[in-house]
Simulated assay, not measured.
Amino acid sequence: MLKRLYEWTMSLAARPRAELWLAVVAFVESSFFLIPADVLFVPMALARPMRAYRLAFIATLFSVLGGIMGYAIGYYAFEALAKPVLAFYGKLDAFDTLRACAGPDTTLILLTTSGLAHLPPIKVVTILAGAVHIGLTFFVVSCILARGARFFALAFLLRRYGDTIRHFIERRLKVIAVVAAAVLILLYFGLKLVAGSGQLLSC
């Protein structure tokens, strides 16, 4: 089932309204869809490199809007909607573990790692942010920075290097994204320590 869903998502890149489909996939990925928007974004940017930044903007915008939807599901309808979705994907236990120690700092870490490297899946984090009532402004800004950084970095690489960079992206980019996220997190907590702001994590 997952392979067929992946192949179907990839096939959308060749359709006349591919940009619309990119917006749809980026939106639903952030709230309940299993396949990341990268699967559609990469072949589209390779096919039309001059539109790479336009595609990155579309993917970022609708990913953030989808994130807001995931946030609203977690905030207003966790039991009715979010819980069944998480259970369907086998993420409910992991979600409960994250929820037990979710505060602003923890959520910022998760938004950074999920936005840059899909760890954990973005849909889990958007629902979590709503379920624990993280501030909406904080949430939206974090999503814009993390998701925008990923899509625009991909756009830059694909526009500059074309298909020669595709293998690198598919095999190595996730590792680089994890390292980048770790550096940002360490910098953030380093600044908090310097500022003497007290407790760093909620658990």
Rank of each mutant, 00 (worst) to 15 (best):
M1Y: 15
M1H: 06
L2I: 03
L2P: 01
K3C: 02
R4A: 14
R4Y: 15
Y6K: 15
W8M: 09
R17T: 13
A23R: 02
F27Q: 00
E29A: 07
F32Q: 09
F33H: 07
L34T: 12
I35E: 10
P36I: 10
V39R: 05
P43H: 02
P43K: 04
M50F: 14
Y53D: 01
R54M: 10
R54S: 13
L55E: 11
I58Y: 08
T60E: 09
F62D: 08
V64T: 06
V64A: 07
V64G: 14
G67V: 07
M69N: 13
A72Q: 08
Y76C: 04
K83S: 10
L86Q: 02
L92W: 00
A94W: 00
F95S: 00
D96P: 06
D96H: 15
T97P: 04
T97W: 09
R99A: 09
R99C: 02
L110W: 06
S114W: 01
H118G: 12
P120M: 07
I122Q: 12
I122N: 11
V125Q: 12
T126Y: 02
I127K: 09
I127V: 07
G130P: 10
V132P: 01
L136S: 03
F139C: 09
C143H: 09
A146T: 10
R147I: 01
G148A: 13
A149Q: 11
F152N: 02
L157I: 11
R159N: 08
Y161V: 04
T164H: 14
H167F: 15
I169E: 03
I169Y: 04
E170S: 15
L173W: 11
L173A: 11
L173V: 05
K174I: 04
A177Y: 01
V178S: 07
V179K: 09
V179L: 13
A180F: 12
A181L: 05
A181W: 11
A182T: 10
V183Y: 11
V183E: 05
L191E: 03
K192P: 04
A195G: 12
L200H: 06
C203Y: 10
